[in-house]
Design a protein around this nucleic acid. Structure first.
Length: 323
DNA sequence: CGTATTTGACCCGCGC
DNA sequence: GCGCGGGTCAAATACG
């Protein structure tokens, strides 16, 4: 096992798959450390102490805190770490090699669907979940019936316009790449596959999953990078409105799901958890506005430029500028 | 038998 | 308007 990489230890059978971000040693997984945010000003990040991820995720910090602390706005940002040496590729493992996020403005866009609540995932309310579900149902209904209930052409046009407005509303999304032989990374939540599509210019299909918990509209896409088949690209969309089933089952093993926090998880913070030598590889791209852009990214869109490059833990954040 | 997966069909947005 | 590609549905199928 490399000294320089986090790892994802897929146990053979019956084990709980740990999520890859939190430490070299499984015994340390109970207390994954991420930098506490203190002494920062608007443009600087100074990791002055460490807190457990548990603290971070469960109330002591929320998205706003994090985002402001990291100098993030609610507008999109995207952080990509395209390459990490994986020295021990013989074992089944995954290494987080990238953090990419879509944090669409929760306030500025048409809000037919529930706007992403930029708080911690645990603060999501049932109302929010219900709204999300309702929205989903409405959308589905409209899709199936083609708004025929509206009757005349005028109503249809209005309906179409509404749908158009709906479409612009996007869930929070968080994508990251993980070096793994396993496509569907175990993250503690239960997912039901609801679709699979071939991806243009890729030999690997894209799989679509939905959280099996009722009224939880979180979705995720899983695909392999066509450029590097060893890399799995996972995209989470939405926020869970329930606890992680695995943690509720009282597993002693550490299991922090990506989806448990990723939807609210600033990429900078994610990346901060990477070893400094990996942070040097971080790239930043233009805002991630649509899935199309995402694929442009995969295609190696040259607009991505080197971002950061310092060797200290915070330098890359310190240097953050919109591309 | 209940649940999960597969997969072809369908809808929609977007670019031309 | 048309074609393409992404995303989703839902019936059929597989599985435990």
């Amino acid at each position: 096992m490399s000294d320089n990489h986090f790892y994802h230890d897929y146990m053979g059978t019956g084990g709980i798959n740990t999520f890859p971000f939190f430490g070299e040693n499984p015994s340390n997984c109970d207390q994954p450390i991420i930098p506490n945010i203190q002494n920062q000003n608007q443009h600087q990040f100074v990791p002055s102490s460490y807190m457990s991820l548990t603290e971070c995720l469960h109330g002591s910090m929320d998205y706003n805190t994090l985002s402001s602390a990291f100098g993030m706005s609610c507008s999109s940002s995207e952080v990509v770490c395209p390459h990490v040496d994986h020295q021990d590729s013989s074992r089944k493992s995954s290494v987080p090699v990238a953090a990419e996020t879509v944090l669409d403005s929760p306030l500025g866009e048409t809000s037919v669907e529930i706007p992403p609540t930029p708080n911690s995932s645990t603060s999501s309310t049932s109302n929010e979940a219900g709204g999300q579900e309702d929205s989903f149902k409405i959308k589905k209904h409209m899709q199936k019936k083609g708004c025929q209930e509206e009757g005349d052409d005028k109503s249809k046009k209005e309906c179409k316009a509404k749908k158009k407005g709906e479409k612009k509303q996007k869930e929070q999304r968080f994508a990251f790449m993980t070096k793994s032989e396993i496509d569907n990374l175990e993250d503690g939540y239960r997912w039901r596959k609801y679709g699979q599509k071939t991806v243009k210019n890729s030999n690997f299909p894209r799989n679509y999953y939905r959280c099996t918990t009722q009224k939880c509209g979180v979705k995720k896409r899983v695909e392999r990078s066509y450029e590097d088949p060893s890399i799995v690209i996972t995209t989470y969309e939405g926020q869970h409105n329930h606890h992680c089933p695995a943690t509720l089952r009282g597993n002693s093993s550490f299991l922090y799901s990506s989806s448990h926090f990723m939807p609210n998880f600033p990429p900078q913070l994610f990346a901060q958890m990477l070893p400094p030598n990996n942070q040097q590889n971080l790239l930043i791209s233009s805002p991630y506005n649509s899935s199309n852009n995402y694929h442009q990214h995969q295609a190696g869109n040259p607009e991505y430029s080197v971002f950061g490059g310092g060797t200290d833990d915070a330098s890359w954040i310190h240097k953050q500028e919109p591309p």
